[in-house]
């Protein structure tokens, strides 16, 4: 394990998670493009956990674990919000948003899915965990 910590569920605190995860993976030498993707995925997942899981309650922190192995880095983000309703998984459609048929928001999960190689969502009781994995190196990493 590279790091394990908690973030207080307060708006804006996803930046704490981004910075801490970024520091934790420094030794892995991720190409800049993949590091930026990981940071965006961590930020969005932490926001999602703080907002929908912990409802921005300071007494319900979000737990974050950073793991590495098998040529990948994995970040687990756990809140106490339990399973998510399917409504949160609406696929954003920009054209529909511009026509007013979808709300402007709703990009978070889409961005997470777009930024990482693997995404696993589990719920057990009140605990809800989103685990995202990113391979350490890809053939198309031109900025390595």
């Amino acid at each position: 394990m590279l790091d394990e910590f908690e973030v207080v569920s307060t708006e804006g605190n996803e930046r704490v998670a981004i910075d801490r995860v970024g520091a934790a993976v420094t030794s892995l030498g991720l190409p800049a493009k993949r590091l930026e993707r990981l940071k965006t995925a961590v930020g969005e997942a932490t926001m999602n956990a703080m907002e929908h899981g912990s409802e921005y309650r300071a007494d319900r922190p979000v737990a974050i674990r950073v793991l590495t192995g098998d040529g990948a880095v994995r970040v687990q983000i756990t809140d106490l919000g339990g399973a998510r309703p399917d409504a949160e998984h609406e696929i954003p459609d920009l054209e529909a948003k511009l026509e007013g048929l979808q709300r402007p928001r709703g990009w978070g999960l889409f961005l997470i899915e777009s930024m990482v190689d693997e995404l696993r969502e589990t719920s057990e009781g009140s605990q809800h965990t989103l685990e995202r994995g990113l391979r350490l190196k890809e053939a198309d990493d031109g900025d390595a």
């Binding site: 930020g43 920009l94 511009l98 007013g100 402007p104 928001r105 990009w107 961005l111």
Partner: peptide
């Protein structure tokens, strides 16, 4: 600096 999904939504709003 940092742009998150809420910021993307704000830009979508301007575009609309």
């Amino acid at each position: 600096g940092y742009i998150n999904s809420t910021g993307i939504a704000l830009i979508v709003g301007l575009l609309a």
